[in-house]
Amino acid sequence: MNTEPLDQKPATASSQTSASTSAPHSVRVATGDEHPVTSPLSVHDMTVAYHRKPVLWDVDFDAPAGSLIGMIGPNGAGKSTLLKAALDLIPKASGRVMVYGKPYRQQRHLVGYVPQRESVDWDFPVNALDVVAMGLYRRIGWCRLVSRRHKQDAMDALEQVGMADFAKRQISQLSGGQQQRVFLARALVQDASLYLMDEPFAGVDASTEIAIVNILQKLREAGKTVLVVHHDLHTVRDYFDYVILLNMRIVAHGPTDEVFTPENLKKTYGGRLTLLDRAAHAMARQGET
């Protein structure tokens, strides 16, 4: 069973990371053809459809390196869908996604993903340390055991999120905020350069929220790029230096000060464009039956 040596070179990965993150920002490119290798995540004309019904239209942006990016939009705007499509978890109808200039498949070791907390069964019989160690499984490889060194790495990650005391706790005994911190630690332990987080602030208490934000800021200081799906409009200005406003399409994206304006918010939250909905419907109907 000991076949493929997956993820052979974590060392080179990190060196590549530092090289790429130190490069200057590139906010937007003029034409679709030259993709800057420096952007941690470039999404090009991506359309995603569920059962042929487009839920995301022509999403196109380059995430600036070394920034904390908030993705904001109403329910059903396709925020989680965007992350999942970028991670190849759901198929794209068109478009492509580049991570540091290469397809995601080749760059998995550079990306840390924090799924929504509700996406798993927290009654599962594992403890917090086990969950964090899962972030290392890929590096450990097929059929190998989790060594003491890996456990130490996981423990360090728990320490970072302030959960070291709870390492041996079964995960169902943790509060919502603590569960979220465990998920965050699982992403941290991967030592990625780009983090994609799906609603890390959903249903967490105030102190956890502050703790998570501190961690995110530390990540940014270390030159990492963090893309966060976010709900709470009040905190956007405080947390993020770059925002993407999304409602089935990108309404606006750019530095928070420029883009996070009442006018843009109104466009984002002021209901969908009816024609998009109708075109999506027509596509779904004619494609299905």
Partner: peptide
Amino acid sequence: ICSLMFKELKLLCFDATFAQSQGW
């Protein structure tokens, strides 16, 4: 088989989405 792939099966059962994003 279960003891060899214990880690992989555990990850699959707990969080298949994450496993998939990791390329398992």
